[in-house]
Design a protein around this nucleic acid. Sequence first.
DNA 1: GGTTAGCGTTAGCCATGGGTAACAAAAGTA
DNA 2: TACTTTTGTTACCCATGGCTAACGCTAACC
Lengths: 231, 231
Amino acid sequence: MGNKSTPGLLTVGSDRSPSRAREDYVKAIYQLGGGAPVRAAAVARYLNVSRVSVSKAKRLLETDGLLEAQATPATPLQLSRKGRALAVAMVRRHRLLETFLHQSLSVPLERLHSEAERIEHVISDDLALRIAVFLGRPSSDPHGHPIPYDDAPAARTPLPTLASIAVGTRARVVSLDDRDDEAIRALAAAGVLPGTTLRVERNDTAQVSVRYGKRVVSLSRRHAEMVRIAT
Amino acid sequence: MGNKSTPGLLTVGSDRSPSRAREDYVKAIYQLGGGAPVRAAAVARYLNVSRVSVSKAKRLLETDGLLEAQATPATPLQLSRKGRALAVAMVRRHRLLETFLHQSLSVPLERLHSEAERIEHVISDDLALRIAVFLGRPSSDPHGHPIPYDDAPAARTPLPTLASIAVGTRARVVSLDDRDDEAIRALAAAGVLPGTTLRVERNDTAQVSVRYGKRVVSLSRRHAEMVRIAT
DNA sequence: GGTTAGCGTTAGCCATGGGTAACAAAAGTA
DNA sequence: TACTTTTGTTACCCATGGCTAACGCTAACC
């Protein structure tokens, strides 16, 4: 019942089933580190759970062979080969689901994440593949994130965000962080979507203004930080 | 861990999350009684859980307002208006999912049930509606069961089964019980599918033989009991 | 060096889901 | 009516998920 759920970020969903919890931890570790070791406390913050819960989950995940055994308790968490494969499978399912929900069922952009978040835990890999085929094996989801078809760690070159760009620079929007409904709604309304090419007009601590074509829009810094771009 | 799971029947799935369990109980009560009161012991048998678990679930369901309050402990379980609405929504989601999985993703008939069984607990009503629209609001699922679009208790006139028919009678297959993979596979292989018109050639305690067109197939009595027909 | 902040762990509690054993009350059956 | 089976309940146990309080350790910070 106690579900604090910060502003827009990941809300684990109050419905914890055993396998669902494991998958959430594995996913979190993967998202945070992209293969690299992650501090347990970071995972706790990310998932909005106590450090204690992470500590307990750690044991279970190790038993399941999803986590590399730790040398000392303080060693950062590292996914095992199996854990990484599971994480990538989750990401694949998530992005395929988002793509399907958006393209075929017209689910609005800002609702994709939460809807996919629940379904991704219950569909089989076979079903995910069938969805991929149905969609024609799309290479990226509606938020601009690449869809990994094999278990490769998905070369995570962290692109710069719109907030980190100097005034005057031209950039192409690559992807939007999909976990914040409100931000997505605002960005979509402003026309800042994957594929859009724009130029930074202003960039101060509070606001980032961008121009594309004839239109100039102001984004809050928080929103600008959720936009990944390529120059 | 202890999951006995009888032959092919409903296997609750070891992944019990709070809401999932509630929905399974409500669905079971609905499927067994079709609106009429049901004995708790029957529910226990149907879901492969102990009577104790049902007894405990009863309290929770009453608290949630899904069950009508009982006069005496021995009173059969009866869904409340709210419980019935939930049950019908579950059935609707289940059948829409099966239809979509079969028609769009070509998931084989005998795997539809278990796949839909997991997904139905995590999709929103809005999503179910979108799927319905996507499919053109089909009136029945691949097993021949009607899809309820409103919350009407879905007039359950229990059709006779193929096993209860006298030799020589002509009948049209209306639906197949979708919960038994093995039976579905056998029936589909034998060509006994919703829509097929056939005639009963033999009907004894072990076997039921039917003819359709030039083909004559023998079905085990158990399988024949899973085929609902109209004469 | 000392203080402070952050991290991971243990102990103890709550709720949910599920199970046995045991028992009294109902329902069937002879 | 008397005996047997079925049914629902209570008392206890187990595991999972999560939480707070409290403690020791480590690593910055002054």
